[in-house]
Write a protein that binds this DNA or RNA. Structure first.
Length: 112
DNA sequence: ATTTTGACGACGT
DNA sequence: GACGTCGCCAAAA
């Protein structure tokens, strides 16, 4: 079933690499994996993240807008914002404040 | 098997 | 800059 690492698995891996207090976007992850146009798959992977053995910090992954679009996928939609705020990220109306400041690009930090 | 939807993003109008 | 459409790929109906 998984002789090779699935695309989804790669997404989970990158998500876990997101530093504490930082956030990234689906497109950034997808682009890092060479699937910039498949940002949706990154999101779908996150939705499937619950199936993973290891927990995935999906709350650190938001859309390009810095909006917590995926909060509904959590057991408690409010949990996503709580987690981010707990890490030092300010959120107003489901949107990250100073998103650019908290943004973490895998391509820059992990280097391609 | 076909259609619709979806945690997105880029481009066109 | 707001709004509309297309692209991308996978899963559910």
């Amino acid at each position: 079933m998984q002789d090779q690492i699935d695309f989804f698995q790669q997404v989970y891996q990158v998500a876990r690499l997101v530093p504490h207090g930082r956030v990234t976007s689906y497109g950034a992850i997808g682009k890092y994996l060479g699937a910039a146009k498949s940002a949706r798959m990154v999101g779908w992977a996150m939705n499937n993240a619950h199936s993973q053995s290891t927990a995935v910090p999906a709350h650190r992954v938001v859309n390009r807008n810095g909006l917590l679009t995926g909060k509904r996928a959590f057991e408690n939609p409010n949990a996503m914002q709580e987690l981010l705020e707990a890490e030092g990220v300010t959120i107003v109306e489901d949107q990250i404040v100073s998103f650019d400041t908290h943004f973490w690009d895998p391509s820059e930090n992990l280097a391609l």
